[in-house]
């Protein structure tokens, strides 16, 4: 389980204000193996929240605690931009993320699920954007993370490619059900992926609502089902519009 209790997170601001309060009194918790989508408008601090969880941003008041025996949690992070090392092949990028001895079979299996086996010795510059995103997802799963953070990883992909990568992601997650925090501003995407959706508002960030997605996984490919759920959601909770 992950418990987040952020009292305040400020950013320097121009003018008299001095500081801009990005997050205030935010409490969230995530269960082990849960797929949670964080949905909110642009600029509401979703990436900041992920950076705090990933320990990339320590300039805040509050705490992020993991229910673990280890001192440091293992955190996989799939960024908006895949952030692969261009001078390392697909396989080397994955191997580098794994501490100590990497299991070759583990990487083989991940590459196979994400349909990248034949591209494992290729440099990232020769991959399409969709393929690069899949490599970044493999890297995240390969470390066997306590939490996998995904920051709008399918943004700027065309609709069919995004659908394909989403489907591969869910296949992989069902095989390896790690806790996933997935940031998006696309409600349809959130409904198609999440066990639970956390709706966030901006300035400062706060939780507007939390909703469990009741659609069975087997029906998530059906766009009509997703759209019907979305319409129902917006009707029941007008504040989410």
């Amino acid at each position: 389980m992950i418990a987040i209790d952020i009292k305040s997170k400020m950013f320097p601001a121009k003018g008299r204000a001095g500081h801009h309060l990005a997050i205030a009194d935010l409490q969230l918790s995530f269960n082990s193996g849960e797929f949670v989508c964080l949905v909110g408008p642009s600029g509401c601090g979703k990436t900041t929240l992920l950076n705090i969880i990933a320990d990339l941003d320590r300039d805040y008041e509050g705490s992020v605690s993991f229910d673990l025996r280890r001192s440091h949690p293992k955190i996989g992070y799939v960024f908006q931009n895949p952030r692969l090392l261009p001078w390392r092949t697909v396989r080397e990028n994955i191997e580098l993320a794994i501490e100590g001895n990497s299991s070759s079979e583990n990487i083989d299996a991940l590459l196979e699920v994400m349909q990248l086996t034949q591209f494992q010795h290729v440099y990232p510059e020769r991959l399409s954007l969709g393929m690069s995103r899949r490599v970044a997802i493999i890297r995240g799963f390969a470390i066997n993370p306590d939490v996998l953070l995904m920051d709008e990883p399918f943004v700027s992909l065309d609709a069919p490619t995004a659908r394909q990568v989403r489907s591969l992601l869910i296949t992989l997650w069902q095989q390896r059900p790690h806790t996933v925090l997935f940031v998006t501003h696309d409600l349809r995407e959130a409904i198609s992926l999440a066990d639970r959706i956390v709706f966030l508002a901006a300035a400062p960030m706060k939780v507007v609502n939390e909703i469990a997605v009741s659609i069975p996984r087997s029906e998530r490919d059906n766009e009509q089902v997703i759209e019907a759920f979305r319409q129902q959601l917006l009707q029941d909770y007008p504040e989410l519009r």
């Binding site: 990933a54 320990d55 990339l56 440091h72 293992k74 955190i75 996989g76 992070y77 960024f79 931009n81 952030r83 090392l85 580098l96 993320a97 501490e99 890297r139 470390i143």
Partner: peptide, 11 residues
């Protein structure tokens, strides 16, 4: 971005 990636993966 790459330095952040390295940091998040505990390089």
């Amino acid at each position: 971005d790459l330095l952040e990636m390295a940091s998040s993966y505990r390089f």
